[in-house]
Design a protein around this nucleic acid. Structure first.
Length: 306
DNA sequence: AAGACGAAAGTGGTTGA
DNA sequence: TCAACAACTTTCGTCTT
C-alpha cells in the first residue's frame, strides 16, 4: 500500500538514491538519512508467519543497510600496527600518511557530542532489543525512529534510555510484535510510567499513526510461551476472528481476549493449560480471562463438553 | 490439593464538563 | 482541574475435579 510515489530526489541533498523502508513506512534518503516521506504504509510481513522465529526469517526484505550503527555500517578502520598487509614495515612518509588517514577517519566518524550520543543510543537500542528477543527488523525500525527523533531535535530534556525504550516499543507496534510497555521499560531499566510517557511524546511529535493492537497478534506469543501446538494457535485465531466479527472485542483489552481465546483453544484441543499459567504469560489476571471466557463461550455458543 | 468460579472493593487511566 | 466512568486487578471465600 503505497501512496504519493512520485518523489525520486532527496530535497535535502539532491541524492536520488531513495530507499523504501517498508517496515517503518518511510521513504528514506540513502545519502543523508533524511526521511523524505512517511506516507508509505506497512502492515508488517507480506506473507504469513506463525511464530516469532518464522517471522524473523520471513521479514528479511527491506533496506539493504543497517540503521543500527551510527554510520550505517559503512565504516572502515585503520589499525595502529605500522605494517602493511604483508606484515612489512612502512616507510616513514607512508607511516605519516597512515597516521593522517587514521586521524581523519576517526574524526569523520564520531565527531561531536550528537554523533557520540547517537552511537550510544543505537547501542542501547541493540541491547534492549537483545534482551527482549526482538527480530532484526524491529531493531532496524526502532533505529530509524530514533534517528527521526534526533533529526527533529526532540531529545533535549529527555533521557536517551527513555527515548530508546519508546522507539523500541513503537517499532514493536509497527511490526506487530507484541511487547508491553512494562517489558520494554524493564529491559531499558526505566519504569513503565516513564516508557509510556516517552512513547506518547513520540506519538505526538512524530505524528505517526500506530494502529491499535489486534488481539490476534498476541496469540503466537502465548502459544510459544506455553509450548502449545499449531492446532491451538489456529483454533484460537478462528475464535478471535469470530469474536471480532461479532463485535465482542471493542472496548476490551486485546491481551485478555487473546488469552481467553488461547485458553478455550487449549481446552478444545486437549492441550489444557490452567487459567493461571496463561494469565501469567499474558500479564492479565485469571479473573479477566474468566470474564472474557464466559463472554466468548456464551456469545459464540461454543460447547464445552468436559 | 489444585484449579475454577465469582462477589466485592481497589486501582490507574481516559473523558467530558 | 476534577469527578465520573469503564476496564481491569486484588483479594478472598466457596465450589469442583
Amino acid at each position: 500500500m503505497i501512496k504519493s510515489e512520485k518523489i525520486t530526489v532527496c530535497p535535502e541533498c539532491g541524492n536520488n538514491d531513495l530507499i523504501r523502508d517498508y517496515e517503518a513506512g518511510e521513504l528514506v534518503c540513502e545519502g543523508c538519512g533524511m526521511v523524505v516521506s512517511s506516507e508509505l504504509f506497512s502492515y508488517g510481513p507480506e506473507w504469513r508467519a506463525f511464530n516469532l522465529e518464522q517471522r524473523e526469517k520471513r521479514t528479511r526484505v527491506g533496506a539493504p543497510l543497517t540503521w543500527t550503527i551510527h554510520d550505517k555500517g559503512l565504516s572502515t578502520i585503520i589499525d595502529w600496527t605500522g605494517r602493511d598487509i604483508y606484515g612489512r614495515g612502512l616507510k616513514p612518509e607512508q607511516r605519516a600518511q597512515a597516521y593522517r588517514l587514521r586521524k581523519w577517519n576517526r574524526r569523520s566518524k564520531v565527531s561531536g557530542a550528537s554523533e557520540r550520543n547517537l552511537a550510544y543510543a543505537l547501542s542501547e537500542l541493540t541491547k534492549i532489543a537483545y534482551k527482549l528477543n526482538l527480530p532484526k527488523n524491529v531493531l532496524e525500525t526502532a533505529s530509524v525512529i530514533y534517528r527521526q527523533v534526533v533529526r527533529k531535535r526532540l531529545i533535549r530534556g529527555r533521557s536517551i534510555q527513555g527515548v530508546a525504550a519508546a522507539s523500541i516499543y513503537m517499532a514493536c507496534r509497527q511490526c506487530n510484535v507484541i511487547r508491553t510497555l512494562e517489558e520494554v521499560g524493564k529491559a531499558a531499566n526505566i519504569t513503565k510510567k516513564e516508557s509510556g510517557r516517552n512513547y506518547r511524546f513520540l506519538l505526538r511529535k512524530l505524528e505517526t499513526r500506530v494502529p491499535p493492537v489486534e488481539a490476534k497478534s498476541y496469540v503466537s506469543k502465548f502459544v510459544n510461551q506455553l509450548t502449545l501446538s499449531g492446532n491451538v494457535e489456529n483454533l484460537a485465531m478462528q475464535i478471535l476472528e469470530q469474536a471480532v466479527a461479532m463485535r465482542l472485542t471493542s472496548g476490551r483489552g486485546p491481551a485478555g481476549i487473546a488469552a481467553a481465546a488461547t485458553y478455550i483453544a487449549s481446552l478444545l484441543t486437549n492441550e489444557r493449560r490452567t487459567q493461571g499459567e496463561i494469565a501469567r504469560g499474558a500479564q492479565v489476571t485469571e479473573v479477566t480471562i474468566r470474564n472474557r471466557y464466559k463472554e466468548l463461550t456464551q456469545k459464540l455458543s461454543i460447547e464445552m463438553d468436559l
